[in-house]
Amino acid sequence: MKTITSPLDQKVIDNLVAGDTVALSGQIYTARDQAHKRLIEALSENRPLPVELMGQTIFYAGPAPTPAGAVTGSIGPTTASRMDKFTPALLEYGVKAMIGKGPRSIEVIESMKAEGAVYFVATGGAAAYLSDFVRKSEVVAFGDLGPEAIHLLEVENFPLVVGIDANGRSALWPDIS
């Protein structure tokens, strides 16, 4: 198991291999369908993003409400492929890592190779377990979207698998190599 910290250094990303299990600490931003739509609109209109995502990690997630006294509600990955059409533009902008579940499109993989980005898989269906690795959660943009708002999370040893590495190798079925 490799221990890594987000934001991720390019050297660290380059050394990750599809199938590696990793424990991720540091800061990550949640964003799913509606947040992606707004981020891409901002980029296409040359407006500043509401949070700086250069070099950052995006987690495709919409947490359950936070119970009283807890840091976060259950939080797990949503289907990454729904974000595929938005992803190349975000990687060109400078996003370095993504966390989700399920396969990605060829266009996304080509863009990951070109930009040196990595896609991690979190276990879909393990949201209560995953919430145990979140130390802080704060809504930092698009609060009107509720669970789809952008949350800044601080995580410690968040358990992930390298789904697709920066060389385009994949640990995900079907075998694309």
């Binding site: 359950a64 509600g73 259950s74 797990g76 949503t78 269906g125 949201a127 209560a128 919430s131 669970p147």
Partner: peptide, 10 residues
Amino acid sequence: ERSLPLCQDC
């Protein structure tokens, strides 16, 4: 144990 939803998608 913690009365948390099994999945964030309830």
